[in-house]
């Protein structure tokens, strides 16, 4: 099932690439033409050189940040989905748990991050926790909605079969929630990267956030931009991976490519 035929898809991907390319070209031209200093706005070519020249460093930093983001996303997703399952099986818990979840969600995590760094150090653990805290909420809300909004006609049918809650959960509610899970992941995936980076700004021994922070304090803009480029690219890749997975897992639903 494809909402958009393959040729259209490659075509629109091509259009996106062309637009990005043109933007970079324009950027390059303006920087050269107006002779904008490097500490204000480096040219894309310089950023590219910086990236290639320090590829080892950047690769290492990317690996750290990506690990934090993905582990945090995994933790946040399992917690969110697990809570959703719990609430769908024992609806009486819903009010209490949701109030708590909203409380956690509303707490400014930018303010929590330094605390976690003080308590847990400069390693990956506090970043994973922050990422999990930021990503569990969209997963919880969406998966719970999916579990609760199973097709009433299917539920009727299972009731006439005298099915128990577990059977209904396994064969109706859980599959019904899968599209909702992916909707949540499309929000939470890119968010996880941002969460990891922001957490790193509060003190880290590695990662793209730390690279950015160091570059910023030294006014090393090519370095800073190189890190931003990597993050943008990583965000697109993470999103793409989620969409790819969605098409295979939720095969019964016509999904758009976004």
């Amino acid at each position: 099932m494809k909402a958009v035929p393959d040729t259209d898809q490659t075509q629109s991907n091509g259009i996106a690439l062309v637009i990005v390319g043109l933007t970079l070209l324009l950027w390059e031209a303006i920087v050269r033409w107006r002779a904008i200093p490097v500490y204000i706005l480096p040219a894309p070519s310089l950023i590219g050189q910086t990236l290639v020249g320090n590829i080892g460093l950047f690769a290492e930093a990317t690996a750290v940040t990506l690990s934090e983001a993905l582990l945090g996303l995994l933790l946040g997703t399992t917690t969110g989905a697990g809570l959703a399952v719990l609430l769908s099986l024992w609806p009486r818990l819903e009010r209490g748990v949701m109030t708590l979840a909203i409380l956690v969600k509303s707490t400014p995590l930018v303010a929590i991050a330094p605390l976690l760094t003080i308590w847990l150090g400069f390693g990956m653990i506090p970043k994973i926790i922050i990422t999990a805290l930021l990503t569990f909420f969209p997963v919880l809300v969406n998966v719970l909605a999916g579990l609760q909004r199973a097709d009433p006609a299917m539920l009727d049918l299972f009731h006439t079969w005298h099915s128990g809650r577990r059977e209904i959960f396994r064969h109706v509610r859980a599959p019904s929630a899968l599209p909702y899970l992916f909707t949540a992941l499309k929000i939470a995936g890119p968010l996880a990267l941002i969460a990891a980076v922001v957490a790193e700004w509060t003190g880290a021994s590695g990662g793209l956030g730390r690279t950015m922070w160091l570059a910023y304090t030294n006014l090393n803009l090519p370095y800073l931009f190189a890190a931003i480029f990597i993050l943008a690219f990583a965000g697109v890749m993470v999103y793409g991976a989620i969409v790819w997975l969605e098409k295979r897992v939720v095969f019964w639903q016509p999904t758009s490519q976004f």
Partner: peptide, 16 residues
């Protein structure tokens, strides 16, 4: 299990 039910919406499970 004496009752079989069928409505206008066939309520087939699309994932199976």
């Amino acid at each position: 299990k004496r009752i079989a039910w069928m409505a206008q919406n066939p309520a087939l499970l699309p994932w199976y």
